[in-house]
Amino acid sequence: MLKRLTMAVLGLGLLFSALARAEVPADYTVVLLTENFPPYNMATNGKNYAREENLDGIAVKVVGEMFKKAGIQYHMTLRFPWARIYKMALELPGHGVFVAAKLPEREKLFKWVGPIGPDDWVMLVKADSPISLLSLEQARQYRIGAYKGDAIDEHLRKQGLEPLSSLRDQENVAKLMNGQIDLWATGDPAGRYLAKLEGVSGLKTVLRFDSAELYLALNPETPDEVVERLQKALDQMRADGTVDKIFQSYVE
């Protein structure tokens, strides 16, 4: 009898736990933060602060459609710099940041939805540069430009390199062209897209040293039901070709 009563209590506990887990208030809203990181996210007005009506990019479209399909409300804002919005998403319940590389050291800090897209890590040089690399170790002798606080910047520092970091990645285009740096450590396709916006083409890839998948990183207190609904919506968008169509509209 005691065993049956114990099992019944445990069963009710699991039931109430599941119900509580599934209950997401109808007015639950996620504050989404992003940065200027073309072609994934960018401000159409060219500024470092923008709201939904002035945002564009692959991830902006994918994430926005994903939330609509999941039936979850959101507000989307572009701010600067990356380190600030990353910290906000990490510390403030109901917040998320995109696009973020899902690295081992970050994995337990957030709840993740994705992948939204790839980010290959490359070293770019000017078209007429004689530099040739086989490894990051060989890059150590050169001046390397990177984006302050970005996953690539962090990775290089952990490898013992000391990149000359800029607050905006597009600043590295001018630095590369005028000789302030020899190598530009950036993402692909982001780097080439930024260079094109600055009127620069023909940059060469001399090293592809890593890659990462880009995700939406949600504050760890985000309800699991919200995360699951968003992931399901994204999986459906990938299966029906929506994600591919959005990508093609920017990169072709």
Results as ranks from 00 to 15, higher is better:
L2V: 14
K3V: 13
K3Y: 10
T6Y: 06
M7F: 13
V9I: 15
G11P: 07
L12M: 09
L12V: 05
G13Q: 06
L14P: 04
F16G: 09
F16M: 13
A18D: 10
L19S: 15
A20Q: 14
R21E: 15
R21I: 14
A22R: 05
V24W: 01
P25Y: 09
D27I: 01
V30D: 07
V31H: 09
T34I: 05
F37H: 07
M42S: 08
M42W: 12
N48Y: 10
N48G: 04
Y49T: 09
A50K: 05
V62N: 07
E65A: 14
F67H: 13
I72R: 05
Y74F: 11
H75L: 10
M76N: 10
F80I: 12
P81A: 12
W82P: 12
A83H: 14
R84A: 11
I85Q: 10
M88G: 00
A89Q: 07
A89G: 10
L90C: 08
P93L: 02
P93N: 01
H95R: 09
A100H: 09
P104A: 03
R106N: 00
V113E: 02
V113Q: 05
G114A: 13
G114P: 04
G117F: 14
D120W: 05
D120T: 11
W121M: 13
W121K: 12
W121D: 10
M123V: 08
M123I: 13
A127C: 09
S129V: 03
P130V: 03
I131K: 02
L134I: 10
S135D: 10
L136V: 15
E137P: 08
Q138L: 12
A139C: 01
Y142F: 14
R143Y: 04
I144G: 08
Y147K: 02
G149W: 00
G149T: 06
D153E: 13
D153R: 02
H155N: 13
R157G: 06
R157W: 04
Q159L: 10
L161Y: 04
E162D: 11
L164D: 15
S165R: 00
S166C: 07
S166L: 05
R168L: 12
D169K: 00
N172R: 01
L176G: 08
M177F: 06
M177Q: 12
Q180G: 07
I181Y: 04
D182K: 01
D182A: 11
L183A: 00
G187Y: 04
G187E: 04
G187F: 04
D188E: 15
D188I: 13
A190R: 12
G191I: 04
G191S: 04
G191W: 05
Y193P: 04
L194M: 15
L194E: 14
E198P: 03
G202Q: 14
V206L: 05
R208Q: 13
R208E: 14
F209E: 11
F209Q: 06
D210V: 09
D210H: 02
S211T: 12
S211M: 09
L214T: 04
Y215S: 02
Y215W: 01
Y215I: 00
L216H: 03
N219S: 08
P220V: 15
P223T: 02
V226P: 03
V227I: 06
E228W: 11
A233D: 08
A233P: 11
L234W: 01
L234I: 03
D235S: 01
M237S: 02
R238F: 06
A239H: 00
G241T: 07
V243S: 08
V243N: 05
D244M: 13
K245A: 15
I246K: 02
Q248H: 07
V251R: 12
E252W: 09
